[in-house]
C-alpha cells in the first residue's frame, strides 16, 4: 500500500525541516563559490565538519557556545585559505581534487586515535548546545495541524535556522549586487579577462572560497546543534553533493536558488524515500529491491538527478533558458 497522504505530509515536513534549512545554508555558500565565482569545491563537507567540530570542541574545552560558533566559522574560513592557496592559481580541476580529498582526510583525522583527546575519536562529542536550548522561549507542546506538527524544541531550532538562512541570503544578495559581486561573476565568465582588467583574480577566488566555507560551517553547526552531537562519520562526501544538487536545482548564480533548491530537494528526497519504502513493502519489486536497499537506491537517485540536471537543466528548475544558451 502506498500511503500517499502520509508520504506527502512527511515530505512537506522535510521541505521546511531542519536539514532543509541547514542545507539551504550550505548551498548558499556553495552557490557563491560555484554559481557566482565558478569554483569547483568538491569538499564542502570539510567546511561543515570544521564548523561543527570547531564549535563542539570549543564548548568541550570549557568555552561558551557563543564563542564556539564564531570559532567554528573562522576555522572554516581558515580552511578555505589553506585549500585555496595551493590550488586557486591552477585549472579548476585542481581545486576539485584537493577539496574532495581534504573532506575525506579531515574526517579520517578527526576520527583517528591521535585526535581523540580533542575530538573523542569515533564517539564524537555530545551535549554542547545546552546554552542554545536554554534560551527557548516556546512553551512546551506540539504546534501544527494534524500530523504536520513540530514540538517546541524542533520549532525553536527551525526558527533560529531559517532566520539565519534569511540573514545569510540577505548578505549574499548585498554582496552579489555590489561591484564585488560583479568582479566574481566576471571571474566565472573568464578569469583571464578579469585579470587583464586589473582584477586580483586569485584573491577574489580565495575570498569566495573562504566566505562560502563559512556558510558551510554554519550549516554544519545548525545540524550539530540540532542533534547535540558531532561525529566524524556523519560528514561523508555525499553531503557535498546534496549541496550541489540543491544549488543546481534552485539555479546556480541566483540569490534565492539555494533556498528554493533545498526546499524542493528535501521534499523530493523524502517523497522518493517513503514511496520506495512503501512500494518495496508492498512487494512491487520482489526480491530485487528489499527495504535495506532503499538507502542505497535513494543515494543513487541523487547521483542520477545531479547528472540529469547538469546535463539538461544547468540553469535550475526556475532559471531562464537564454542564460544557458550563453554558456560557453
Amino acid at each position: 500500500m502506498i500511503q500517499w497522504d502520509n508520504i506527502l505530509i512527511d515530505a512537506g515536513r522535510a521541505a521546511i525541516g531542519i536539514p532543509a534549512a541547514a542545507y539551504a545554508m550550505s548551498a548558499l555558500g556553495l552557490n557563491l563559490q560555484f554559481g557566482y565565482t565558478g569554483l569547483l569545491n568538491f569538499g564542502h563537507v570539510a567546511f561543515m565538519l570544521v564548523g561543527a567540530y570547531g564549535t563542539a570542541i570549543t564548548v568541550d574545552l570549557g568555552g561558551s557556545l557563543w564563542l564556539g560558533i564564531p570559532v567554528g566559522i573562522a576555522l572554516a574560513a581558515l580552511l578555505g585559505l589553506l585549500l585555496g592557496f595551493p590550488t586557486l592559481r591552477l585549472r579548476t580541476d585542481y581545486l576539485a581534487i584537493v577539496t574532495i580529498a581534504a573532506g575525506e582526510i579531515l574526517r579520517l583525522i578527526v576520527r583517528s586515535s591521535g585526535a581523540e583527546p580533542l575530538t573523542n575519536g569515533v564517539f564524537g562529542i555530545q551535549a554542547f548546545a545546552d546554552e542554545f536550548f536554554d534560551l527557548n522561549p516556546i512553551v512546551d507542546g506540539r504546534y501544527g495541524i494534524g500530523r504536520f506538527r513540530f514540538d517546541e524544541r524542533t520549532l525553536w531550532v527551525l526558527i533560529a535556522a531559517w532566520a539565519l538562512v534569511a540573514l545569510g541570503t540577505w548578505i549574499i544578495w548585498k554582496l552579489t549586487r555590489s561591484p564585488w559581486g560583479r568582479v566574481i561573476r566576471s571571474i566565472r565568465e573568464d578569469e583571464d579577462a578579469a585579470r587583464s582588467l586589473g582584477k586580483n583574480v586569485f584573491w577574489y577566488k580565495l575570498q569566495s572560497l573562504m566566505i562560502g566555507g563559512a556558510y558551510g560551517a554554519l550549516a554544519g553547526i545548525i545540524l550539530a546543534v540540532d542533534q547535540q552531537n558531532v561525529s566524524a562519520d556523519f560528514f561523508i562526501p555525499l553531503l557535498t553533493f546534496y549541496a550541489y544538487t540543491i544549488v543546481i536545482l534552485g539555479g546556480p548564480g541566483t540569490v534565492f536558488g539555494p533556498i528554493l533548491g533545498s526546499i524542493l530537494f528535501w521534499f523530493l528526497f523524502e517523497l522518493f524515500d517513503e514511496f520506495l519504502f512503501d512500494a518495496v513493502a508492498a512487494g512491487w519489486f520482489g526480491d530485487v529491491i528489499e527495504t535495506t536497499d532503499v538507502g542505497a537506491i535513494r543515494f543513487a537517485a541523487v547521483g542520477v538527478g545531479l547528472m540529469l540536471l547538469m546535463a539538461f537543466r544547468p540553469q535550475g528548475i526556475f532559471g531562464k533558458r537564454e542564460e544557458v544558451l550563453l554558456d560557453v
Binding site: R185, R195, G198, L326
Partner: peptide, 20 residues
C-alpha cells in the same frame, strides 16, 4: 593584474567577452 593597473592593458586574439 598589477601590470594592468600600471597602465598596460591587453586584449585577446579570441575575444574574451564576459558572456553573462
Amino acid at each position: 593584474f598589477q601590470v594592468a593597473r600600471q597602465g598596460m592593458i591587453r586584449t585577446f586574439q579570441l575575444t574574451r567577452s564576459l558572456a553573462r
